[in-house]
Each structure stands twice: as structure tokens, then as C-alpha cells.
Design a protein around this nucleic acid. Structure first.
Length: 88
DNA sequence: TATCTGACGATAG
DNA sequence: CCTATCGCCAGAT
């Protein structure tokens, strides 16, 4: 059966644990769709119930428009956020 | 099938 | 650090 992109991505995200941060590219690769980082962003944008705050871009930059919310959530999980970016 | 969009990525200036 | 441009992908129109 063919892999469903959205479903695979959802699995990866739901499998994340508190304190874990991944990039869109990592999620796409883990889901089995390397290079589909953009598509991953589209999913998070339209889907809900997923730990979107644990996903950042390759530069560690937070999600545009949700920096405040995301930074607060990440900090609550023990993740260091500096100037809108995640220290890794 | 063609075209556009976008919570991306990398590179260039 | 910033914007601009190109390449990539899945979904929508």
C-alpha cells in the first residue's frame, strides 16, 4: 500500500517526545519523503492536534507568526530559545 | 496537464 | 542580519 504523506508525517510528529525538536527536512526524511520539507509545513499549517511547536526550519528559526507561542511552549519543555531561534 | 501556492532549504549578494 | 533567487515537493485550482 502506498505511503500516505500526511499520515506518515503525522506518525513522526506524534512520535516526538517532550524536549525533542526536529526540522521540516528531518520530519520529511523520517516520514519517507526526503526533500518534501515544504509539504510538511503545509500539513502542519492545515492540520491540528500535532506538536507543530516542536518543528523548526533548518536554521532553527521558529514558525513565522507563532514565534511567541512556539517559544513559550518550547521553553516549557526545557528547550533554549534565543532571539527567535532554537539552540541545538 | 498546466499553473500557483507555501509554517522549506541552500546559496548569493 | 537582510532580501532575492533557484530548486524541491505535495496539494489545490
Amino acid at each position: 500500500m502506498q505511503p500516505d504523506f500526511e499520515e506518515a508525517v503525522r506518525e513522526v510528529l506524534t512520535g516526538l517526545k517532550p524536549g525533542d525538536v526536529v526540522t521540516y527536512g528531518e520530519v520529511a526524511a523520517e516520514a519517507g519523503f526526503p526533500g518534501a520539507a515544504r509539504a510538511v509545513g503545509n500539513i502542519l499549517r492545515g492540520s491540528d492536534g500535532l506538536p507543530w511547536w516542536r518543528v523548526v526550519n533548518a536554521a532553527g528559526r521558529l514558525v513565522p507568526g507563532h514565534e511567541r507561542e512556539q517559544a513559550q511552549r518550547l521553553r516549557a519543555e526545557g528547550i533554549a530559545v534565543k532571539n527567535g531561534k532554537v539552540s541545538r
